[in-house]
Simulated assay, not measured.
Amino acid sequence: MPSFRATVQITGLRPGHAPEEVMDTAVAVVASRHVVEANQLDVVAGVPRITVRFMVEASEYDAENRLARDAVASLGHGVNTVATTGALRAFRRSAGKWLPI
């Protein structure tokens, strides 16, 4: 199964939401369609960034990328219900590197 990851900058929390809800929401949204391999929180240049790594069902290359982009878009929409966000990016693991899709 091909491996993908989504990264999103977190620029603030929406009123009434706790910090842990951001990652919980991101993982739950992706896990509703795909197997989540890992998740992590990093602070890059003072800005929190979450990463969710997941797999999609193996099929045709472009179809796999479409499924991954859909999952990343859903993650972005889900996280936006609990936090304000910045850059949202999607990557595919290929030959030991993470390449943007």
Rank of each mutant, 00 (worst) to 15 (best):
M1D: 11
M1A: 14
P2S: 06
P2Q: 05
S3W: 03
S3T: 13
S3E: 15
R5S: 03
A6P: 00
T7K: 03
V8P: 03
Q9D: 15
Q9E: 15
Q9L: 10
I10M: 09
G12E: 04
G12V: 04
L13D: 08
L13R: 05
L13A: 08
L13G: 06
L13H: 05
P15W: 02
P15F: 05
P15I: 00
P15S: 08
P15K: 01
G16C: 04
H17M: 02
H17V: 03
H17E: 06
A18S: 11
P19S: 10
P19V: 09
E20N: 11
E20R: 09
V22Q: 07
M23T: 07
D24N: 14
A28K: 09
A28V: 01
A28R: 10
V29M: 12
V29A: 13
V30R: 01
V30S: 04
A31F: 02
A31L: 04
A31M: 03
A31S: 14
R33A: 13
R33M: 12
R33H: 11
R33V: 07
R33Q: 13
R33P: 02
H34A: 13
V35Y: 07
V35M: 11
V35I: 07
V35P: 04
V35C: 03
V36T: 02
V36A: 04
E37L: 14
E37Q: 12
N39A: 07
Q40W: 00
Q40D: 06
Q40A: 06
L41K: 00
D42G: 00
D42T: 01
V43D: 04
V43M: 08
A45R: 07
A45W: 00
G46A: 06
V47F: 02
P48R: 05
P48E: 11
R49V: 12
I50W: 01
I50Q: 03
T51A: 06
T51P: 01
T51W: 00
V52Q: 00
V52T: 01
V52I: 06
R53F: 01
F54N: 08
M55Q: 15
V56R: 08
V56S: 12
S59H: 08
S59M: 08
S59W: 02
E60A: 13
E60L: 12
Y61N: 13
Y61C: 04
D62N: 12
A63T: 14
A63W: 05
A63G: 10
N65E: 14
R66N: 12
R66C: 05
L67E: 15
A68M: 11
A68P: 09
A68V: 06
R69Q: 14
R69M: 15
R69P: 00
R69I: 07
A71D: 06
A73S: 11
S74K: 12
L75R: 04
G76V: 02
G76T: 01
G76P: 04
G78R: 05
G78Y: 05
G78A: 09
V79P: 09
V79G: 10
V79M: 13
V79K: 08
V82M: 12
V82H: 08
A83N: 10
A83L: 13
T84M: 14
T85Q: 12
G86F: 10
L88M: 13
R89V: 03
R89N: 11
A90S: 15
A90I: 03
A90W: 02
F91H: 04
F91R: 01
F91S: 00
R92C: 04
R92H: 09
R93L: 15
R93K: 07
R93F: 10
S94L: 12
G96A: 08
G96E: 06
K97C: 03
W98M: 05
W98D: 08
W98I: 01
